[in-house]
């Protein structure tokens, strides 16, 4: 996996961020977290990220709207959308709008990890 750049997790649910944080730490994946879109955009302004993992349903700008914002400022970032059963249509909509992939919550960690690896490969290929 590419060593330098970090990934950014955007989710309004603190519990979920905790679980994912532990998971990434255990696998020595560099990451930052944001509780909403604005915070995510702040992070992207400060540091380089190759992959953003983003929940679809968030208060304020939702995941798809936030993705559009990120694509404006950091078009090379690969975005993986997280959808719930209730918001599952967002998976395909997100793909059509340029997301790299989607993952269904509750998240299967191994599946997400593979998607992160592939997203990083693609981001690296773009330069």
């Amino acid at each position: 996996m590419a060593e330098s750049k970090k990934l950014l997790l955007v989710d309004d649910e603190a519990d979920f961020r905790d679980i994912m944080g532990k998971y990434f730490s255990r696998r020595q994946i560099g990451f930052e977290m944001a509780g909403g879109c604005m915070e995510a955009l702040d992070w992207l302004g400060r540091e380089d990220f190759d992959v953003v993992i983003m929940d679809v349903s968030m208060p304020g700008l939702d995941g798809l709207e936030c993705m559009a914002e990120i694509q404006k400022v950091k078009p090379d970032t690969e975005i993986i959308i997280l959808t719930g059963h209730a918001s599952i249509n967002a998976g395909l909509i997100g793909m059509k709008k340029g997301a790299f992939d989607y993952c269904l919550k509750p998240v299967d960690f191994d599946e997400l990890l593979e998607k992160i690896i592939l997203a990083r490969e693609k981001a690296a290929a773009k330069g």
């Binding site: 059963h85 599952i88 395909l92 793909m95």
Partner: peptide, 17 residues
Amino acid sequence: MAFIRSKVTTILVNVFK
């Protein structure tokens, strides 16, 4: 239905890819 939805989404997304 949740199973159907999730499988159908998987199919749609992968065919799209």
